[in-house]
Nucleic acid binder design. Structure first.
Length: 349
RNA sequence: CCGGGCUUAGUAUGGGAA
């Protein structure tokens, strides 16, 4: 059976899908393909964007002598989710029960995650409750998922409620939970709650990772609490967490939104001199900061020097610069930008 | 009995619209 699967995977690998499928179908009916091999087939077909065939294999196995196992269902749920086929993913979940299998933690998390990404908060919460019945104490991962669902739906209060419930249940928040909450609070402009959260995190002696540091800095920075943002920036380096391009972009944005274009530019130079590579987003942020503070020429200089760091201007770069030209009634530069825009391989939006 | 494999969570930039 294993060699069967290897042979079939090989056919798939070299693109002989049309040869492999009929062989696979016959082998399944003969019972020559066990559950594990079926999983390999289902997975590799889905990876090759042949989800339809994965489903066919799966259905054939359900009727054949060797039934698919729980992992097969989980794989399908996952790929259906990636294809944004939310309803079908839910159907597979229920099919699992009808076929006498018990959805496990992964099945639940996978489905909750799909619903989260597709904005179905209340459904996500339903399945979360089901998960709770299954395991009693959902993991921090599950809580993070649900909190993020509410966050993406703009339901800050509900997200915080879930966080409270999590603490009542004595599930220890991890860095992902904290960083998710910092993002939600940052977007909700709730720096007070964020500060409280920071206190809790320190009290629990939770060591932030790079991404969490970035999220915290962004949270305070975007709400005008620049000092706090830089304090955390300093703390992070003292703790031996090396900032990255994202960290600097965040700080540049924070300063830019406060009109501190010169300080932002100092930081930009500092990051380059320390060997960090600005990317398009860093450049866009810096250009926007200059634009906001009316440093017209400097903004264009920065645009011109983007190739130094192998950065291609994108739709956002052009949009910032064109807006600026409009404000300055600079038709010549507008025209030149339009030429650059056409020459550049930009996906317009 | 032990071990292993496949499936699950969080970061930065513009304008417009609601």
């Amino acid at each position: 059976s294993l060699s069967y699967a290897c042979f079939l995977s090989l056919l798939l690998k070299i693109g002989q899908v049309d040869e492999a499928i009929p062989l696979a179908m016959k082998a399944i009916m003969k019972g020559s393909i066990d559950a594990n091999c079926g999983n390999i087939l289902i997975d590799s077909l889905a990876k090759r964007n042949r989800l339809d065939l994965s489903c066919k294999i799966f259905q054939r196995m359900r009727r054949g002598p060797c039934k698919p196992n729980l992992i097969a269902y989980n794989i399908l749920i996952n790929y259906l989710g990636e294809a944004r086929r939310v309803i079908q993913a839910c159907n597979i979940f229920h099919l699992m029960k009808r076929d006498g299998l018990k959805p496990d933690v992964t099945s639940h998390l996978s489905l909750i995650n799909i619903l989260r990404k597709n904005g179905k908060v209340s459904l996500a919460h339903e399945y979360f409750k089901e998960l709770k019945l299954l395991v009693g104490k959902p993991s921090a991962v599950a809580y993070a998922c649900l909190i993020d669902s509410y966050g993406r739906a703009g339901k800050e209060i509900q997200a915080l409620k879930i966080y409270d419930e999590m603490k009542e249940n004595e599930v220890h928040p991890d860095v992902v939970v904290y960083s998710t909450l910092f993002r939600i609070l940052g977007q909700a402009r709730n720096a007070i709650a964020a500060n409280r959260l920071l206190g809790e995190m320190r009290y629990k002696k939770c060591e932030p990772d790079l991404q969490t540091y970035n999220q915290m800095i962004d949270c305070f920075g975007r709400n005008g609490w620049i000092q706090k943002a830089f304090d955390i920036f300093g703390e992070m380096r003292r703790n031996g967490t090396c900032p990255d391009t994202v960290t600097y972009s965040i700080l540049i944005n924070s300063l830019g939104s406060k009109g501190e274009a010169l300080k932002a530019f100092e930081l930009f130079k500092e990051m380059v001199s320390e060997g960090f590579h600005p990317n398009v987003i860093t450049y866009n942020s810096m250009i926007k900061a200059l634009a906001r503070a009316n440093f017209y020429e400097q903004a264009f200089q920065l645009y011109e020097q983007m190739p130094i760091h192998e950065c291609q201007p994108d739709a956002i770069t052009f949009s910032i610069l064109l807006d600026m030209c409009t404000d300055h009634c600079d038709a010549k530069r507008s025209a030149r930008l339009f030429n650059d825009l056409k020459a550049a391989d930009v996906t317009p939006d």
